[in-house]
């Protein structure tokens, strides 16, 4: 690619991002209609294409931001970064009914607690099975299984080694990606078709990016409900991880 052409994409990176993502979404809806007759939602295909792009970007640059590490696609990192993502999530709350949130009440709180507790136990168990038998490593990997932010925060607080922290981030990423891709497929079998279940789903799964992507591909009307509880999950995990969960896991390690 000639340098002057490249510099247009680099200088107008956010504009390039909107164009590239728009084309990707359009292509995905085309595939959805033609290949699956709309059975696999266009946005689900778009998210998978996005993840595929991220994989190839990562292979190319060995960076941490997927396709956004390539200079001409840097704008995608800004467009899909925390700032714009949170702005868009908050905007979706225009369609929220307060009554639904009030009705969920206790279930939402329980889902948050269970959603933090279960991944820690599962993650710590897996860590132990793979030979990481000290409480700090077990807790850190368990924290990563909660979300990829809770992992490094807990690991840093407990003084875990950097390879364990990297492992915990990887566990959290696997979770986020699996939730993004898998949610539309299992939504029916777990009754995920109403605001109440979406609120509980958000609290249990926690990963904001996973929940946001998964619900968008299932039914965009459910996004604000799931996102609202998911956003409390990370904070709760960071609070309980280096304290309660560490003490609990130390008892059994």
């Amino acid at each position: 690619m000639s340098d002057s052409l490249k510099s247009v994409f680099v200088d107008y990176s956010l504009v390039t991002a909107f164009a590239v993502i728009g084309l990707t979404v359009g292509f995905s809806y085309f595939l959805s209609h033609r290949l699956t007759r709309g059975r696999l939602h266009g946005s689900a295909i778009a998210i998978m294409l996005g993840l595929l792009m991220a994989y190839f970007g990562g292979m190319e640059t060995h960076g941490k931001k997927g396709i956004a590490d390539l200079p001409i696609f840097a704008g995608i990192g800004l467009m899909g970064g925390n700032m714009i993502r949170d702005l868009a999530i908050v905007a979706t709350s225009m369609g929220v009914h307060l009554g639904e949130i009030r009705k969920t009440g206790l279930g939402g709180v329980v889902s948050l607690l269970v959603g933090v507790f279960v991944p820690f136990i599962v993650g710590a168990g897996v860590a132990r099975a793979f030979g990481y038998t000290d409480a700090v490593s077990m807790t850190t990997i368990g924290a990563g299984a909660a979300t990829f932010i809770v992992g490094p925060v807990t690991g840093t607080a407990l003084g875990a080694s950097s390879d364990i922290i990297a492992l915990s981030v990887a566990a959290g990423l696997v979770k986020a990606i699996l939730v993004m891709i898998g949610t539309p497929f299992i939504a029916k079998s777990i009754g995920l078709n109403n605001p109440r279940t979406a609120l509980i789903f958000g609290g249990l799964m926690g990963t904001t990016s996973g929940v946001a992507g998964g619900l968008a591909a299932t039914d965009p009307k459910l996004v604000p409900y799931g996102a609202m509880t998911a956003t409390f999950h990370t904070g709760l995990g960071c609070l309980l991880g280096p304290s309660v969960m560490y003490f609990l896991i130390r008892q059994v390690a």
Binding site: G50, L51, A54, G66, L173, A212
Partner: peptide
């Protein structure tokens, strides 16, 4: 579209190459 951009800027390579312990835990 923002979520698609978010997916495209995830560290998918680390997730895939993180090893069996990370994948199983997730």
């Amino acid at each position: 579209p923002v979520v698609v951009a978010m997916a495209a800027s995830q560290d998918v390579r680390s997730a895939v190459t993180g090893g069996p312990a990370a994948i199983l835990a997730g």
